[in-house]
Amino acid sequence: MTATGGFAPKILVFSTHTISDPGIDLAGSSHLHYSPTVMVISLPCTSGIRPDWITYAIEQGFDGVFVATDGEECAFLPNCAELSSHIVSRAQEMLKEKGYEPRRVRMAAICSVCADPFVNHMAEFSAALADLGPSTEERAA
């Protein structure tokens, strides 16, 4: 459990094989700490995330989903940032329709050496989710 008062939000991170996942790896290689309730699924590109994977994760018990996108550096799609941000907006709309707080989804560009920024994002997001409380309670409400 953490300093956030006993509730450690479970965060699902979607990363990318060639850019953001190496950045997250670097946080580990540098022995930087974030909550062990943060778990990562690495994909080729964040433009391939289905919005309903995000809603599924929240509905099943994750408290937040963080999309660690390649931003402008994506080697596959020139408009990756735009496509990924559209996916996140769509997921937020879907969450809202289902009665969840759309702020449970966040996106930021994480580069292959962005170890510190990733750890900072996780700290900030954990704190924000701790304020929102567990997603399961939201569903119950």
Binding site: P44, C45, S47, G48, I49, R50, F76, L83, I87, R90
Partner: peptide, 14 residues
């Protein structure tokens, strides 16, 4: 195909 998956979320019928 480069296997990026960019086509997946845009398909209206999954």
């Amino acid at each position: 195909c480069k296997g990026c998956g960019g086509c997946i979320p845009v398909c209206p019928v999954n």
